[in-house]
């Protein structure tokens, strides 16, 4: 059957390796009936050759390799390299692929939202849980919660307070709702006092939540 290629995730095609995979079933199964359904679907699809156990194991490895670390690298580089930042803002995915030697391929549009002293960006998907998985991995549970999704569009400042972030009333809070084919990465403000930091030291300041907009990068208290 033919469908247009329309996915909210990317597919890593250059992941050709051979190694031992964990056995598919492990602990932490849910208590309810659903675990039987999950096993039934997995077995039937494997038997029919639709999706094999090996493919599932490999896909899990691929997904595990996607963490906020990549997003942090992008942000840190944008902080130290103005020309990279310019390219990043103009053509995010192309620039990231080129600079980091990746082949992230998706029909979705990645938009980088730059925080400034005048604008603080936050990201949500009120309708489900769309998230820049190709850069940051799987979203946190709170991002997918109805509490976050319902509240951040109507009371972003209250939500920020709850997350312990403080944004001035003089700064515009700009909430981007990922309703369709766009995925967002927040480029947080570089903290003061980091002029002598190396790129690696800067990366350590960029947490997942700073790239969603519920946190601002902080220097660790010594």
């Amino acid at each position: 059957m033919s469908h247009p290629k329309h996915h909210d995730h990317d597919h890593d095609h250059d992941h050709d390796h051979d190694h031992d995979h964990k056995p598919i079933e492990s602990q932490q199964e849910p208590a309810g009936e659903e675990r039987f359904l999950e096993q039934a679907l997995r077995e039937l699809l494997d038997e029919k050759g639709v999706v094999t156990a090996a493919q599932i194991a490999q896909q899990i490895d691929i997904q595990d390799s996607r963490t906020p670390a990549l997003g942090a690298k992008v942000v840190a580089k944008a902080w130290v390299n103005p020309s990279f930042k310019q390219d990043l803002l103009a053509a995010p995915l192309e620039t990231i692929n080129k600079t980091f030697g990746l082949t992230i391929n998706t029909p979705l549009e990645l938009v980088v939202l730059e925080n400034t002293p005048d604008v603080h960006n936050m990201v949500v998907c009120t309708l489900c849980s769309c998230y820049p998985r190709m850069l940051l991995g799987i979203p946190p549970a709170w991002y997918k919660s109805t509490d976050y999704r319902s509240r951040v569009v109507i009371e972003p400042r209250a939500v920020l307070k709850e997350f312990g972030a403080h944004i001035s009333d003089e700064t515009e809070i700009r909430v981007s709702d990922s309703t369709a084919d766009v995925r967002y990465l927040v480029l947080p403000l570089r903290p003061q006092g980091t002029d002598m930091f190396t790129e690696a030291q800067l990366e350590a300041l960029v947490t997942r939540d700073t790239m969603i907009g519920t946190a601002v990068p902080k220097l660790m208290e010594s």
Partner: peptide, 19 residues
């Protein structure tokens, strides 16, 4: 759900289980 009343957001980290 955008704009509906919600409660305090549970910020606990829940690493996805293998399941």
């Amino acid at each position: 759900v955008g704009g509906l009343t919600g409660s305090q957001i549970d910020q606990a980290e829940h690493d996805p289980t293998f399941y």
